Amino acid sequence: MRTRLLAATLTALAAVSLAACSSSGSGAGSDKATTAAGAPTSAAAAAASSGSPASPGSTPAAPAPSGTGAADGATGAPAGSPPGASAPGPDASAPAKPAPPADAGLPPKPDADATGKVVAALNAIDPAIVGGKPDQAVEQARKQCQSMYQFPKDTAKLVELADRNFTSPDHPQGFGPDTAAKINDALRATLCPSPR
């Protein structure tokens, strides 16, 4: 009984595979393939349920050719895809990692007490850094904190960015690398959160 059921199932599978093979080249023949594939499957199911052999001398069907089935063998694209489509990459189902927000690492505007600490630390290095404009100095400090968040281990880049961010009328090109390094240390101690 199991042999008859197996033979009927394999015959039905072969008929479906052959129908799919013959219709893979044209979109118009897909309805015919469905109809043709449906008839043997029904006959095989009827033969399996009645216990009679599907056909005398039937042999197990050979596996379907590699070009048929869920994907087109030439391109790897899913069946029914437009010509020239290719298979999605291995990471296509994995969600893309979202980009960090534009304000990542930017600390909130400090309150009066925190602002006083930042201004005092910068004035201790050189009063010209603040230059009588504490709000501007704090905004420059916040931007430098964001750079520290983005490049936590690149000391040379952070010195370069601090030298570029902190300027004054007397120092339009910055205060130099030594002062820039001190600015970074002062900001780490007063305003910038610890790096990732």
Rank of each mutant, 00 (worst) to 15 (best):
G84V: 01
A120W: 08
A92Q: 00
A46T: 12
P63C: 04
A61Y: 07
L18Y: 00
A64Y: 03
S22Y: 05
A87L: 04
S17Y: 01
S22V: 12
A74H: 02
A85L: 01
A128L: 09
A102D: 14
A20E: 07
A128N: 13
P98T: 13
T41P: 00
G67L: 03
A94E: 06
P95Q: 04
S22K: 01
G69K: 03
S86H: 11
D91N: 04
S52I: 14
D103S: 13
G38F: 04
S49A: 15
L122I: 10
A44S: 14
A33D: 10
D111R: 03
S50H: 04
S93T: 14
P107F: 11
I125T: 13
S52V: 15
S26R: 05
G89D: 12
A99G: 11
P63D: 15
P100K: 11
S30V: 14
K97L: 07
A37M: 01
V16L: 09
A44L: 05
K32F: 06
A28E: 10
A79C: 06
A15M: 00
P95E: 09
S58R: 06
K109H: 14
P60V: 13
A15E: 00
S26T: 13
A99V: 13
A15L: 00
D72S: 07
S42E: 06
T75Q: 03
A43I: 07
A87V: 02
G25S: 09
S26Q: 12
A39S: 11
P82A: 15
A61D: 13
A20L: 04
V118E: 08
A43P: 00
S42N: 03
G29Y: 07
A47N: 10
A20I: 01
D113H: 08
A37G: 15
I125S: 09
A37N: 00
G73W: 06
A15G: 07
G80A: 10
A128M: 08
A79L: 13
